[in-house]
Design a protein around this nucleic acid. Structure first.
Lengths: 221, 221
DNA sequence: ATAGTACTCAATTGATTTATTGAATATTCA
DNA sequence: TGAATATTCAATAAATCAATTGAGTACTAT
């Protein structure tokens, strides 16, 4: 058995794990799961400097996890392959399951998450088939445009206050956003319920939805 | 949006990725996927010092990926949960798919892997149903005892030379070992084919087999 | 109680990673 | 051609990681 060749093999594989072994790069991947983003957008959304974001993107690119394409003066980064989304979801699932600190940190970040009802994908689909459930996608519009759950209506969180009166009073309002690590759907739901509507949150975002075997819709290009 | 809480959340999740961001720790996980091992066994199989192996195991334990239980003077380590095996397989799959260097390193470690036929799990099962296929598990006996593919016979690689005459001449001999990063099945297959038998390798080990939805057998305790 | 075995821990050293800063590069527009 | 915008790169300092060494701990057998 070739010990040096075996060591090199594991070292190469470890490179991918090293690429995702940083909190900023994980957040960048989480953003890219929703839609392609420019460096500027990623730096802003991830709360890091432009140079820092760019450096982290080079690390992710070098590990084959993202690719960038130039569009004029901007470079649009996206996931290199859907299996990268799967790896991120798997990592997050293991972290949540195996480390109590992750669950605690999630409660601190999403303090409202135990206060409202949740709904499963299957129950959501049944409700939408019956016609008594309304599904709201409260992500930014570029993320909705990149792909959304079937039947979802886009009401970005920042526009919700002026649009609450549009919501029917006799339906169950279901909100979703980027997935389990996102608070947008919690905040939207709080407003919906405060306004007297019945509501629930879907924990899954588009990536979790697809990983569970359901399909998404996409606007015509 | 609570920026500090969000940062902490991603930092906690990154801890798990950091834990697997080292080649030695990946090899330890790969070994533990097959069966629980003592620190001494792991250090030997992984080509590292006892103290180093122990340190890496502490890192994996702290990330919730392995657990240890004392049995007399030895501590037997095992995966904390099957989802850890899934994470390892997912990471490896991404690495093989996204980095050409990983494929090259695998070729260097397994130089014979393109020379022999392979067989899919479905074709293997069909052949065993027909009764014209013999499945050999060439891992060490403790790993076979921890769980093996249904219908497999255990012939550890080091005992194969003295047992080749036992093999039927009219069946397809299929070998498997720890999975895609293991050479045991290649070396066994070379001997089987050199002795004039028809042979093929199954790339999947027990973890890949289970992840694909098939069940394994286990000897009564 | 002591010796043997297995394992862990702490300190040290050298290597690697990360964020910042300022310069450099690429593209577009007037 | 030059200015503006977007992005990357290189150098630096601080923080973190990994392997080794030697000491310490836990368990077992005599």
């Amino acid at each position: 058995m070739n010990r040096p060749a075996k060591d090199r093999l594991y070292q190469h594989i470890a490179q991918v794990a090293q690429a995702i072994g940083n909190s900023h790069r994980l957040e960048l991947l989480d953003l890219l799961v929703q839609a392609p983003h420019s460096v500027e957008q990623l730096a802003l959304a991830g709360g890091m400097s432009l140079a820092n974001a760019s450096q982290h993107l080079q690390r992710l690119k070098h590990a084959g996890l993202v690719v960038g394409e130039r569009l004029g003066t901007t470079i649009r980064y996206r996931l290199a392959d859907p299996i990268v989304a799967r790896l991120w979801i798997e990592l997050r699932t293991v972290a949540l399951s195996q480390l109590a600190d992750v669950e605690r940190a999630l409660d601190e970040y999403r303090p409202q998450r135990q206060q409202f009802p949740t709904i499963t994908p299957a129950a959501l689909q049944a409700g939408m088939m019956r016609g008594d459930t309304l599904l709201l996608d409260v992500r930014p519009p570029e993320e909705f445009n990149a792909g959304y759950l079937p039947g979802a209506i886009s009401i970005p969180l920042d526009t919700l206050p002026t649009r609450l009166t549009e919501l029917p009073t006799d339906a169950l309002i279901v909100t979703y956003c980027r997935g389990p690590l996102c608070v947008y759907a919690d905040e939207a739901l709080a407003q919906v319920i405060a306004r007297g509507r019945r509501g629930a949150r879907l924990e899954e975002g588009v990536a979790e939805w697809q990983l569970a075997g359901y399909s998404i819709e996409r606007l015509a290009a």
